[in-house]
Simulated assay, not measured.
Amino acid sequence: MKRRAFIQAGAALGIGAVFTQSSQAQALKVRKTNPQVMDTRGDVAANAGLPINSKNQGTHYRPKYRMGLGGLAAGNGFNTISNDEEILKMLHAAWDSGVRHYDTSPFYGLSLSERRFGDLLRNKKREDYVLSSKVGRILTPSAEPLPKKWHWAKPSPFHYHYDYSAAGTRRSIEDSLHRIGVSSLDIVYIHDLSPQNSDMGENWTQYVDEALKGAIPELTKMRDEGIIKGWGFGINTPDILYNYLDQMDPDICLLALQYSILDHQQALDKTFPLLDERDISVVVGAPLNGGFLAGRNRFNYSSYIPQEMQDKYTKISAIAQQHGIDIKTAALQFAAAPSTVSAIIPGARTSEQLDENVESMKIKIPAEFWSKLKSEKLIMSDAPTPS
Results as ranks from 00 to 15, higher is better:
P250V: 11
P250R: 15
D251H: 11
I252R: 15
C253K: 12
C253L: 13
L254T: 04
L255H: 06
A256F: 11
A256M: 13
L257S: 06
L257W: 08
Y259K: 06
S260N: 03
S260A: 04
I261D: 05
I261C: 09
I261T: 02
L262N: 02
L262Q: 03
D263P: 00
Q265N: 11
Q266S: 11
Q266H: 13
Q266C: 10
L268M: 12
L268H: 09
L268E: 05
D269N: 14
D269Y: 10
D269K: 15
F272P: 01
F272D: 03
P273I: 04
L274C: 09
L274T: 09
L275N: 07
E277Q: 15
R278L: 12
R278Y: 08
D279S: 14
D279R: 14
I280Y: 15
I280T: 08
I280K: 15
S281P: 13
N289Y: 01
G290M: 07
G291N: 04
G291I: 04
G291T: 02
G291M: 07
F292N: 05
L293H: 00
A294N: 08
A294M: 11
G295Y: 12
G295W: 12
N297P: 03
R298N: 08
R298K: 12
R298D: 01
R298W: 06
N300M: 10
Y301H: 08
S302N: 08
S303A: 08
Y304F: 13
I305H: 07
Q307I: 14
M309Y: 12
Q310M: 12
Q310C: 03
D311R: 13
D311H: 10
D311W: 08
D311E: 10
Y313P: 00
T314Q: 11
K315G: 00
K315S: 02
K315H: 05
K315Q: 09
I316W: 09
I319D: 00
A320E: 01
A320H: 05
Q321V: 00
Q321N: 10
Q322G: 01
G324S: 04
